[in-house]
Computed example of a mutant assay.
Amino acid sequence: MSAPRSRRAPRALPRLVAAASVAVAALTALTACSQPVPFDPAPDAADPDCAAVVVRLPDEVAGQAERETNAQGTGAWGSPASVLLRCGVEPPGPTTLRCVSVDDVDWIIDESDAPRYRFTTYGRTPAVEVVVDNDVVAGTTVITDLSPAVAAIPAEGGCTDLEELPAEQ
């Protein structure tokens, strides 16, 4: 003969229900924290060259994880976002701002809103703009990490020094 069966729920069931409840609550909290970074797209964000840049963006920039954005031609890293990228901005004209070249990509550096620095590609159309919170990450590390993706836009020119300009006659 078999032993009578108990009609009580197994002891593991309450623990399983509690663990599932905690997992659902944690997932909901994490989802709420990972909202897309809001952006206004740049005027030429729909340019095919911007699409070529965006598909090449790294998963991590200066040690900051990539974030989802809500606009075409954009990228963001960090939580809160400390690196913001917009492709399709107006290419800058001649300027006296400092210019650096990283992996054959020229970047103009606008430090007027320090510690928030704005890096804009020079000699590429459309241009790419990157805003960096320098209190969180180093701008030079950011543009080093992003230059390979930005190089998808062909260079049409680049920065020059005064010494490189032809002498006036």
Rank of each mutant, 00 (worst) to 15 (best):
A138P: 05
S2F: 10
Q35W: 08
S112R: 08
V128H: 02
L13S: 02
A19K: 04
P166Y: 14
V136E: 15
R67A: 12
T31Y: 12
E68I: 10
R56K: 15
A149K: 02
V150L: 05
G123D: 11
L30M: 15
G158I: 09
N70P: 02
A167M: 15
N134V: 10
W107N: 05
P38T: 15
V137N: 12
C159P: 10
E129K: 10
A45Q: 01
P43C: 02
T144Q: 15
D59C: 05
R15K: 09
A65P: 13
A62V: 00
R86H: 07
S82P: 05
P115V: 05
V53D: 04
P92Q: 08
V136A: 15
E68P: 04
L27P: 01
R8S: 10
L16K: 01
G139P: 01
D106I: 00
P10I: 00
P36T: 03
T74W: 12
P154G: 15
V55K: 09
E168Q: 13
A76C: 03
P58L: 03
T121R: 04
T160L: 11
I109L: 13
P115I: 04
A18F: 03
V132F: 08
T121K: 07
R86W: 09
A32S: 13
V83L: 06
A26I: 13
V24L: 13
L27E: 07
P10Y: 02
P126E: 03
D113Y: 09
P148D: 03
P36G: 02
I143H: 02
R15P: 00
I108N: 14
R8Q: 13
A167E: 15
A81Q: 06
R67G: 04
D135M: 09
S82D: 06
G75D: 04
F119H: 09
E168W: 14
R118I: 08
L97Y: 09
I143S: 00
D47V: 06
V150T: 06
V100E: 14
S82K: 08
V83M: 06
